[in-house]
Amino acid sequence: MAHDWQPDFEQLVDEHQSMVFSLAWRMTGDRGLAEEIAQDVFLELDRHLGKIESAVHARFWLRRVTMSRSADALRRRKVRGIDLWVEMEDRHCVQGASGSSPLGTRVEQLLGTLPEPQRAALVLRYQEDLTPEEIAATLGTPLATVKSHLQRGLKLLRAKAQSNLREFVRVKEQVSGL
């Protein structure tokens, strides 16, 4: 198929390294593993650069492959019996993004305790601002399943936040007291 778009590998890395790394980190909970996945994904992109037809296609391809590689990495870790997010919380003490509130940081940590399919749907929804249809295309999952994962994941996350986060309650009380 003929297409005029000329991909520039370095430019693609510059544009998308933050997205790829963030997706991999939020899916695996391991900063080192996320960087490894990000490098592997970009090297794979380099090998498939001739098949990439547009900037939009490149972004879609990167999201899809990153989610797939992260899921593979999680499966390998599960076989070895390691709970990545617990490991991360215990050892590395997750630091929030600059400007994010302690509540936001805690919500992000709780996201890591959700089942993988729900976490994937929520990360793509709230980090990447994708619609359920786009999430379904990215994950190769039926739309109804994605909607279900989004609803259940959000509900579970709310429940976890309300029951486990005293800080969340305190902030809510402060806000409601104003």
């Binding site: 890395v13 933050s18 997205m19 993004a97 940081t105």
Partner: peptide, 25 residues
């Protein structure tokens, strides 16, 4: 949901990721 959206902003890639990637390449 607003808090979640705020919390899930993209993180900056680790410094040197591109450099290490280009070396591997």
């Amino acid at each position: 949901e607003r808090e979640l959206h705020q919390a899930l902003q993209r993180r900056p890639a680790p410094p040197g990721l591109k450099l290490r990637l280009m070396e591997r390449r």
